[in-house]
Design a protein around this nucleic acid. Sequence first.
DNA 1: AAACAAAACTAACAAGTGTTAGTGCTTTAT
DNA 2: ATAAAGCACTAACACTTGTTAGTTTTGTTT
Lengths: 197, 197
Amino acid sequence: MAKLGNRKNGSRKEMISLAAARLFREKGFASTGMRDLAGDVGVEAASLYNHIRSKSELLQEICFRVANDFNTQLQQMESSETLSSIEKLEAIVRFHIDMWVNRLDEVIVTNNESKYLEEPYNATFLNERRIYVRRLEQIIEDGIRKGQIRKVQPYAVVLTLLSAVRGIEFWHRTKKNISASELEESMIVHLVEGLKK
Amino acid sequence: MAKLGNRKNGSRKEMISLAAARLFREKGFASTGMRDLAGDVGVEAASLYNHIRSKSELLQEICFRVANDFNTQLQQMESSETLSSIEKLEAIVRFHIDMWVNRLDEVIVTNNESKYLEEPYNATFLNERRIYVRRLEQIIEDGIRKGQIRKVQPYAVVLTLLSAVRGIEFWHRTKKNISASELEESMIVHLVEGLKK
DNA sequence: AAACAAAACTAACAAGTGTTAGTGCTTTAT
DNA sequence: ATAAAGCACTAACACTTGTTAGTTTTGTTT
Protein backbone atom coordinates (compact mmCIF):
# COMPACT_ATOMS: atom_id res chain seq x y z
CA MET A 1 0.00 0.00 0.00
CA ALA A 2 1.07 3.55 -0.60
CA LYS A 3 1.51 5.35 2.65
CA LEU A 4 -0.57 8.34 3.47
CA GLY A 5 1.50 11.45 2.95
CA ASN A 6 3.34 9.68 0.19
CA ARG A 7 5.48 11.78 -2.15
CA LYS A 8 3.19 11.06 -5.10
CA ASN A 9 0.03 11.61 -3.13
CA GLY A 10 1.41 14.78 -1.64
CA SER A 11 2.49 16.28 -4.93
CA ARG A 12 -0.80 15.38 -6.58
CA LYS A 13 -2.82 17.09 -3.92
CA GLU A 14 -0.48 20.06 -4.06
CA MET A 15 -0.87 20.25 -7.82
CA ILE A 16 -4.63 20.35 -7.46
CA SER A 17 -4.51 23.01 -4.78
CA LEU A 18 -2.11 25.09 -6.84
CA ALA A 19 -4.22 24.84 -9.96
CA ALA A 20 -7.33 25.61 -7.91
CA ALA A 21 -5.76 28.77 -6.49
CA ARG A 22 -4.83 29.95 -9.97
CA LEU A 23 -8.25 29.18 -11.43
CA PHE A 24 -10.20 30.57 -8.47
CA ARG A 25 -8.22 33.76 -8.87
CA GLU A 26 -8.62 34.03 -12.63
CA LYS A 27 -12.22 32.94 -13.06
CA GLY A 28 -13.54 33.24 -9.52
CA PHE A 29 -14.63 30.37 -7.27
CA ALA A 30 -18.18 30.09 -8.57
CA SER A 31 -17.16 30.17 -12.23
CA THR A 32 -14.45 27.56 -11.85
CA GLY A 33 -15.87 24.15 -12.68
CA MET A 34 -14.48 20.88 -11.45
CA ARG A 35 -14.04 19.97 -15.12
CA ASP A 36 -11.92 23.10 -15.66
CA LEU A 37 -9.79 22.18 -12.68
CA ALA A 38 -9.49 18.56 -13.78
CA GLY A 39 -8.45 19.67 -17.25
CA ASP A 40 -5.67 21.81 -15.82
CA VAL A 41 -4.43 18.94 -13.70
CA GLY A 42 -4.72 16.53 -16.64
CA VAL A 43 -7.35 14.20 -15.30
CA GLU A 44 -11.09 13.56 -15.39
CA ALA A 45 -13.27 15.55 -12.99
CA ALA A 46 -14.35 12.53 -10.99
CA SER A 47 -10.73 11.55 -10.35
CA LEU A 48 -10.18 14.68 -8.31
CA TYR A 49 -12.32 13.14 -5.59
CA ASN A 50 -9.65 10.55 -4.89
CA HIS A 51 -7.61 13.46 -3.48
CA ILE A 52 -10.09 16.01 -2.19
CA ARG A 53 -13.40 15.86 -0.40
CA SER A 54 -15.10 18.73 -2.20
CA LYS A 55 -14.64 21.94 -4.14
CA SER A 56 -15.34 23.84 -0.94
CA GLU A 57 -12.52 22.08 0.85
CA LEU A 58 -10.06 23.48 -1.67
CA LEU A 59 -11.21 27.01 -0.90
CA GLN A 60 -11.07 26.39 2.83
CA GLU A 61 -7.49 25.16 2.66
CA ILE A 62 -6.36 28.16 0.64
CA CYS A 63 -8.07 30.74 2.83
CA PHE A 64 -7.01 29.32 6.16
CA ARG A 65 -3.47 28.58 5.05
CA VAL A 66 -3.07 32.24 4.11
CA ALA A 67 -4.84 33.49 7.23
CA ASN A 68 -2.60 31.30 9.34
CA ASP A 69 0.55 32.67 7.74
CA PHE A 70 -0.57 36.22 8.44
CA ASN A 71 -1.45 35.39 12.03
CA THR A 72 1.85 33.65 12.65
CA GLN A 73 3.88 36.60 11.43
CA LEU A 74 1.80 39.06 13.43
CA GLN A 75 2.36 37.06 16.58
CA GLN A 76 6.11 37.15 16.01
CA MET A 77 5.98 40.93 15.80
CA GLU A 78 3.81 41.26 18.86
CA SER A 79 6.17 39.17 20.95
CA SER A 80 9.27 41.15 19.95
CA GLU A 81 10.74 43.14 22.82
CA THR A 82 13.37 44.97 20.83
CA LEU A 83 11.35 46.48 17.98
CA SER A 84 9.58 49.83 18.31
CA SER A 85 5.93 50.09 17.36
CA ILE A 86 6.79 51.77 14.09
CA GLU A 87 9.34 49.07 13.29
CA LYS A 88 6.77 46.38 14.00
CA LEU A 89 4.28 48.12 11.75
CA GLU A 90 6.82 48.48 8.99
CA ALA A 91 7.76 44.80 9.21
CA ILE A 92 4.10 43.82 9.04
CA VAL A 93 3.43 45.98 5.99
CA ARG A 94 6.55 44.57 4.34
CA PHE A 95 5.25 41.09 5.03
CA HIS A 96 1.92 41.97 3.45
CA ILE A 97 3.66 43.36 0.39
CA ASP A 98 5.79 40.24 0.20
CA MET A 99 2.71 38.03 0.30
CA TRP A 100 1.01 40.06 -2.44
CA VAL A 101 4.12 39.89 -4.60
CA ASN A 102 5.02 36.22 -4.13
CA ARG A 103 1.78 34.44 -3.36
CA LEU A 104 -0.65 36.45 -5.43
CA ASP A 105 -3.04 33.64 -6.35
CA GLU A 106 -3.65 32.47 -2.81
CA VAL A 107 -3.86 35.99 -1.39
CA ILE A 108 -6.31 37.23 -4.00
CA VAL A 109 -8.49 34.17 -3.54
CA THR A 110 -8.41 34.70 0.21
CA ASN A 111 -9.43 38.34 -0.22
CA ASN A 112 -12.01 38.02 -2.97
CA GLU A 113 -13.50 34.54 -2.70
CA SER A 114 -13.64 33.85 1.04
CA LYS A 115 -17.32 34.81 0.99
CA TYR A 116 -17.98 31.48 -0.74
CA LEU A 117 -16.73 29.56 2.30
CA GLU A 118 -19.47 27.39 3.76
CA GLU A 119 -20.61 27.93 7.30
CA PRO A 120 -19.20 27.79 9.84
CA TYR A 121 -15.95 28.47 8.00
CA ASN A 122 -17.11 31.80 6.64
CA ALA A 123 -18.05 33.09 10.07
CA THR A 124 -14.79 31.83 11.55
CA PHE A 125 -12.81 33.51 8.80
CA LEU A 126 -14.56 36.87 9.22
CA ASN A 127 -14.03 36.67 12.94
CA GLU A 128 -10.33 35.93 12.56
CA ARG A 129 -10.02 38.90 10.25
CA ARG A 130 -11.75 41.17 12.75
CA ILE A 131 -9.34 40.06 15.45
CA TYR A 132 -6.37 40.57 13.16
CA VAL A 133 -7.43 44.16 12.52
CA ARG A 134 -7.92 44.70 16.24
CA ARG A 135 -4.41 43.50 17.00
CA LEU A 136 -2.96 45.86 14.42
CA GLU A 137 -4.91 48.70 15.97
CA GLN A 138 -3.37 47.86 19.32
CA ILE A 139 0.15 48.12 17.93
CA ILE A 140 -0.69 51.59 16.65
CA GLU A 141 -2.32 52.61 19.93
CA ASP A 142 0.79 51.39 21.71
CA GLY A 143 2.96 53.48 19.43
CA ILE A 144 0.88 56.57 20.03
CA ARG A 145 1.02 56.07 23.80
CA LYS A 146 4.79 55.69 23.68
CA GLY A 147 5.14 58.80 21.53
CA GLN A 148 6.54 56.86 18.55
CA ILE A 149 3.54 57.36 16.29
CA ARG A 150 1.58 60.51 15.44
CA LYS A 151 -1.92 60.93 16.78
CA VAL A 152 -3.99 59.12 14.16
CA GLN A 153 -7.20 57.13 14.03
CA PRO A 154 -5.87 53.58 14.51
CA TYR A 155 -8.80 51.90 12.79
CA ALA A 156 -8.67 54.17 9.75
CA VAL A 157 -4.92 53.67 9.43
CA VAL A 158 -5.22 49.89 9.60
CA LEU A 159 -7.93 49.86 6.93
CA THR A 160 -5.76 52.04 4.71
CA LEU A 161 -2.63 49.95 5.20
CA LEU A 162 -4.29 46.61 4.59
CA SER A 163 -6.05 47.79 1.45
CA ALA A 164 -3.27 49.88 -0.07
CA VAL A 165 -1.11 46.84 -0.76
CA ARG A 166 -3.88 45.35 -2.89
CA GLY A 167 -2.68 47.67 -5.65
CA ILE A 168 0.07 45.13 -6.23
CA GLU A 169 -2.53 43.02 -8.03
CA PHE A 170 -2.57 45.54 -10.88
CA TRP A 171 1.20 45.84 -10.86
CA HIS A 172 1.30 42.11 -11.53
CA ARG A 173 -1.02 42.43 -14.49
CA THR A 174 0.91 45.16 -16.27
CA LYS A 175 4.59 44.71 -15.47
CA LYS A 176 5.72 48.29 -15.46
CA ASN A 177 9.14 49.91 -15.42
CA ILE A 178 9.28 49.39 -11.70
CA SER A 179 10.67 46.42 -9.81
CA ALA A 180 9.10 44.65 -6.87
CA SER A 181 11.61 46.14 -4.45
CA GLU A 182 11.18 49.66 -5.81
CA LEU A 183 7.43 49.26 -5.43
CA GLU A 184 7.88 47.98 -1.89
CA GLU A 185 10.13 50.87 -0.85
CA SER A 186 7.79 53.38 -2.41
CA MET A 187 4.80 51.94 -0.58
CA ILE A 188 6.62 51.78 2.74
CA VAL A 189 7.69 55.41 2.46
CA HIS A 190 4.22 56.52 1.42
CA LEU A 191 2.33 54.52 4.01
CA VAL A 192 4.59 54.20 7.06
CA GLU A 193 6.96 57.15 6.99
CA GLY A 194 4.14 59.62 7.49
CA LEU A 195 3.07 57.90 10.70
CA LYS A 196 6.36 58.61 12.46
CA LYS A 197 6.27 61.36 15.04
CA MET B 1 -49.96 52.71 -25.44
CA ALA B 2 -47.48 53.45 -22.72
CA LYS B 3 -44.74 55.67 -24.02
CA LEU B 4 -41.15 54.51 -24.03
CA GLY B 5 -39.29 56.14 -21.19
CA ASN B 6 -42.45 56.01 -19.20
CA ARG B 7 -42.17 56.65 -15.46
CA LYS B 8 -43.19 53.10 -14.63
CA ASN B 9 -40.89 51.58 -17.24
CA GLY B 10 -37.97 53.70 -16.10
CA SER B 11 -38.37 52.92 -12.44
CA ARG B 12 -38.79 49.21 -13.15
CA LYS B 13 -35.53 49.04 -15.04
CA GLU B 14 -33.86 51.07 -12.31
CA MET B 15 -35.20 48.72 -9.65
CA ILE B 16 -33.73 45.77 -11.52
CA SER B 17 -30.37 47.46 -11.96
CA LEU B 18 -30.31 48.46 -8.31
CA ALA B 19 -31.18 44.98 -7.11
CA ALA B 20 -28.62 43.54 -9.51
CA ALA B 21 -25.87 45.77 -8.12
CA ARG B 22 -26.70 44.72 -4.59
CA LEU B 23 -26.85 41.01 -5.43
CA PHE B 24 -23.77 41.06 -7.65
CA ARG B 25 -21.92 42.66 -4.76
CA GLU B 26 -23.18 40.29 -2.09
CA LYS B 27 -23.10 36.99 -3.95
CA GLY B 28 -20.88 37.80 -6.92
CA PHE B 29 -21.97 37.99 -10.55
CA ALA B 30 -21.58 34.29 -11.30
CA SER B 31 -23.45 33.17 -8.18
CA THR B 32 -26.36 35.51 -8.70
CA GLY B 33 -29.11 33.72 -10.58
CA MET B 34 -31.78 35.40 -12.61
CA ARG B 35 -34.27 33.73 -10.26
CA ASP B 36 -32.56 35.37 -7.27
CA LEU B 37 -32.74 38.71 -9.00
CA ALA B 38 -36.35 38.20 -10.02
CA GLY B 39 -37.25 37.23 -6.46
CA ASP B 40 -35.75 40.45 -5.14
CA VAL B 41 -37.68 42.50 -7.68
CA GLY B 42 -40.86 40.55 -6.95
CA VAL B 43 -41.40 38.97 -10.32
CA GLU B 44 -40.74 35.74 -12.24
CA ALA B 45 -37.32 35.29 -13.85
CA ALA B 46 -38.65 35.32 -17.39
CA SER B 47 -40.39 38.64 -16.79
CA LEU B 48 -37.04 40.38 -16.36
CA TYR B 49 -36.48 39.98 -20.08
CA ASN B 50 -39.23 42.47 -20.81
CA HIS B 51 -36.84 45.08 -19.38
CA ILE B 52 -33.31 43.85 -20.01
CA ARG B 53 -31.58 42.04 -22.83
CA SER B 54 -29.39 39.77 -20.72
CA LYS B 55 -27.67 39.27 -17.38
CA SER B 56 -24.46 40.50 -18.96
CA GLU B 57 -26.08 43.75 -19.98
CA LEU B 58 -26.81 44.52 -16.34
CA LEU B 59 -23.14 44.15 -15.47
CA GLN B 60 -22.08 46.26 -18.42
CA GLU B 61 -24.34 49.10 -17.40
CA ILE B 62 -23.09 49.11 -13.83
CA CYS B 63 -19.40 48.98 -14.73
CA PHE B 64 -19.49 51.63 -17.44
CA ARG B 65 -21.74 53.96 -15.51
CA VAL B 66 -19.22 53.96 -12.66
CA ALA B 67 -16.24 54.22 -15.00
CA ASN B 68 -17.89 57.14 -16.71
CA ASP B 69 -18.47 58.98 -13.44
CA PHE B 70 -14.81 58.58 -12.48
CA ASN B 71 -13.66 59.75 -15.90
CA THR B 72 -15.92 62.78 -15.85
CA GLN B 73 -14.66 63.94 -12.48
CA LEU B 74 -11.04 63.38 -13.48
CA GLN B 75 -11.52 65.48 -16.57
CA GLN B 76 -12.93 68.32 -14.48
CA MET B 77 -9.81 68.28 -12.31
CA GLU B 78 -7.47 68.13 -15.29
CA SER B 79 -9.09 71.15 -16.88
CA SER B 80 -8.88 73.29 -13.76
CA GLU B 81 -6.44 76.17 -14.06
CA THR B 82 -6.64 77.37 -10.49
CA LEU B 83 -5.95 74.19 -8.50
CA SER B 84 -2.43 73.03 -7.70
CA SER B 85 -1.41 69.46 -8.48
CA ILE B 86 -1.73 68.49 -4.85
CA GLU B 87 -5.16 70.07 -4.64
CA LYS B 88 -6.28 68.17 -7.73
CA LEU B 89 -4.98 64.96 -6.27
CA GLU B 90 -6.72 65.60 -2.98
CA ALA B 91 -10.01 66.33 -4.73
CA ILE B 92 -9.70 63.14 -6.75
CA VAL B 93 -9.01 61.02 -3.69
CA ARG B 94 -11.93 62.66 -1.90
CA PHE B 95 -14.13 61.81 -4.86
CA HIS B 96 -13.00 58.19 -4.71
CA ILE B 97 -13.73 58.05 -0.99
CA ASP B 98 -17.13 59.59 -1.63
CA MET B 99 -17.94 56.96 -4.24
CA TRP B 100 -16.87 54.15 -1.91
CA VAL B 101 -18.98 55.57 0.89
CA ASN B 102 -22.14 56.42 -1.03
CA ARG B 103 -22.24 54.04 -3.97
CA LEU B 104 -20.64 50.97 -2.47
CA ASP B 105 -22.61 48.34 -4.39
CA GLU B 106 -21.85 49.70 -7.83
CA VAL B 107 -18.22 50.47 -7.02
CA ILE B 108 -17.50 47.06 -5.56
CA VAL B 109 -19.16 45.33 -8.50
CA THR B 110 -17.11 47.46 -10.86
CA ASN B 111 -13.94 46.54 -9.01
CA ASN B 112 -14.55 42.87 -8.34
CA GLU B 113 -16.85 41.61 -11.06
CA SER B 114 -15.75 43.48 -14.19
CA LYS B 115 -13.79 40.41 -15.24
CA TYR B 116 -17.10 38.77 -16.10
CA LEU B 117 -17.81 41.37 -18.77
CA GLU B 118 -18.07 39.78 -22.19
CA GLU B 119 -15.71 40.79 -24.93
CA PRO B 120 -15.18 43.35 -26.22
CA TYR B 121 -16.47 45.07 -23.11
CA ASN B 122 -13.89 43.53 -20.82
CA ALA B 123 -11.00 44.67 -23.01
CA THR B 124 -12.48 48.14 -23.31
CA PHE B 125 -12.92 48.38 -19.58
CA LEU B 126 -9.35 47.30 -18.81
CA ASN B 127 -8.07 49.77 -21.35
CA GLU B 128 -10.07 52.62 -19.85
CA ARG B 129 -8.70 51.75 -16.44
CA ARG B 130 -5.14 51.77 -17.76
CA ILE B 131 -5.68 55.19 -19.26
CA TYR B 132 -7.23 56.47 -16.04
CA VAL B 133 -4.14 55.39 -14.10
CA ARG B 134 -1.91 57.02 -16.67
CA ARG B 135 -3.73 60.33 -16.35
CA LEU B 136 -3.35 60.23 -12.57
CA GLU B 137 0.35 59.57 -12.99
CA GLN B 138 0.60 62.64 -15.17
CA ILE B 139 -0.94 64.85 -12.50
CA ILE B 140 1.68 63.60 -10.07
CA GLU B 141 4.52 64.06 -12.58
CA ASP B 142 3.25 67.57 -13.15
CA GLY B 143 3.29 68.28 -9.43
CA ILE B 144 6.84 66.97 -9.09
CA ARG B 145 8.01 69.11 -12.00
CA LYS B 146 6.41 72.18 -10.48
CA GLY B 147 7.95 71.44 -7.08
CA GLN B 148 4.57 70.93 -5.41
CA ILE B 149 4.98 67.21 -4.82
CA ARG B 150 7.90 65.24 -3.34
CA LYS B 151 9.99 63.06 -5.61
CA VAL B 152 8.00 59.82 -5.60
CA GLN B 153 7.31 56.97 -8.02
CA PRO B 154 4.10 58.19 -9.69
CA TYR B 155 2.92 54.73 -10.67
CA ALA B 156 3.43 53.29 -7.21
CA VAL B 157 1.65 56.23 -5.60
CA VAL B 158 -1.34 55.90 -7.92
CA LEU B 159 -1.64 52.17 -7.19
CA THR B 160 -1.49 52.89 -3.47
CA LEU B 161 -4.06 55.68 -3.60
CA LEU B 162 -6.58 53.81 -5.72
CA SER B 163 -6.39 50.68 -3.57
CA ALA B 164 -6.21 52.28 -0.15
CA VAL B 165 -9.76 53.58 -0.36
CA ARG B 166 -11.02 50.03 -0.85
CA GLY B 167 -10.69 49.64 2.90
CA ILE B 168 -13.97 51.50 3.14
CA GLU B 169 -15.67 48.25 2.16
CA PHE B 170 -14.81 46.77 5.56
CA TRP B 171 -15.78 49.95 7.34
CA HIS B 172 -19.24 49.53 5.83
CA ARG B 173 -19.50 45.97 7.11
CA THR B 174 -18.65 46.76 10.72
CA LYS B 175 -19.89 50.24 11.51
CA LYS B 176 -17.25 51.36 13.92
CA ASN B 177 -16.98 54.30 16.27
CA ILE B 178 -15.83 56.43 13.41
CA SER B 179 -17.94 58.50 11.05
CA ALA B 180 -17.61 58.71 7.29
CA SER B 181 -16.14 62.19 7.46
CA GLU B 182 -13.64 61.24 10.17
CA LEU B 183 -12.58 58.29 8.05
CA GLU B 184 -12.25 60.53 5.01
CA GLU B 185 -10.11 63.11 6.81
CA SER B 186 -7.91 60.42 8.27
CA MET B 187 -7.34 58.84 4.88
CA ILE B 188 -6.63 62.17 3.22
CA VAL B 189 -4.05 63.05 5.83
CA HIS B 190 -2.44 59.64 5.69
CA LEU B 191 -2.37 59.37 1.90
CA VAL B 192 -2.05 62.90 0.54
CA GLU B 193 -0.37 64.99 3.23
CA GLY B 194 2.84 63.01 2.98
CA LEU B 195 3.16 63.78 -0.70
CA LYS B 196 3.45 67.53 -0.16
CA LYS B 197 6.90 68.97 -0.54
C1' DA C 1 -65.72 50.77 -25.19
C1' DA C 2 -62.14 49.37 -28.38
C1' DA C 3 -57.52 48.98 -29.40
C1' DC C 4 -52.99 48.33 -28.34
C1' DA C 5 -48.83 47.84 -26.10
C1' DA C 6 -46.38 46.99 -21.77
C1' DA C 7 -45.36 43.61 -18.75
C1' DA C 8 -46.62 39.77 -16.16
C1' DC C 9 -47.22 34.67 -16.33
C1' DT C 10 -46.31 29.25 -17.33
C1' DA C 11 -43.65 25.84 -19.51
C1' DA C 12 -39.85 24.36 -21.40
C1' DC C 13 -35.14 24.08 -23.58
C1' DA C 14 -30.25 22.71 -23.81
C1' DA C 15 -26.25 23.00 -21.36
C1' DG C 16 -23.62 22.83 -17.33
C1' DT C 17 -23.18 22.00 -12.07
C1' DG C 18 -20.81 19.14 -8.11
C1' DT C 19 -20.70 14.69 -6.85
C1' DT C 20 -21.34 9.39 -6.35
C1' DA C 21 -21.05 4.52 -7.72
C1' DG C 22 -18.76 1.06 -9.61
C1' DT C 23 -14.81 -0.89 -12.23
C1' DG C 24 -10.19 -1.90 -13.35
C1' DC C 25 -5.31 -0.80 -13.80
C1' DT C 26 -1.03 0.33 -11.38
C1' DT C 27 1.96 0.71 -7.65
C1' DT C 28 3.58 -0.44 -3.10
C1' DA C 29 4.14 -3.45 1.23
C1' DT C 30 4.39 -7.87 3.01
C1' DA D 1 3.83 -13.63 -5.60
C1' DT D 2 -0.08 -11.88 -3.22
C1' DA D 3 -2.77 -8.68 -0.96
C1' DA D 4 -3.93 -4.05 -0.37
C1' DA D 5 -4.28 0.40 -1.38
C1' DG D 6 -3.86 4.38 -4.67
C1' DC D 7 -5.75 6.38 -8.41
C1' DA D 8 -7.79 6.97 -12.90
C1' DC D 9 -11.64 5.81 -15.68
C1' DT D 10 -16.90 5.77 -17.53
C1' DA D 11 -21.59 6.59 -16.64
C1' DA D 12 -24.88 8.65 -14.42
C1' DC D 13 -27.55 11.39 -10.82
C1' DA D 14 -30.33 15.29 -9.44
C1' DC D 15 -30.24 20.05 -9.85
C1' DT D 16 -29.43 24.65 -11.49
C1' DT D 17 -28.26 27.81 -15.18
C1' DG D 18 -29.72 31.78 -18.69
C1' DT D 19 -32.95 32.31 -21.95
C1' DT D 20 -37.02 31.73 -25.39
C1' DA D 21 -41.87 30.95 -26.89
C1' DG D 22 -46.35 31.65 -26.33
C1' DT D 23 -50.21 33.34 -23.67
C1' DT D 24 -52.75 36.18 -20.52
C1' DT D 25 -53.32 40.14 -17.62
C1' DT D 26 -52.84 45.09 -16.76
C1' DG D 27 -52.95 49.80 -17.87
C1' DT D 28 -53.23 53.62 -20.88
C1' DT D 29 -54.81 56.17 -25.22
C1' DT D 30 -58.08 57.07 -28.68
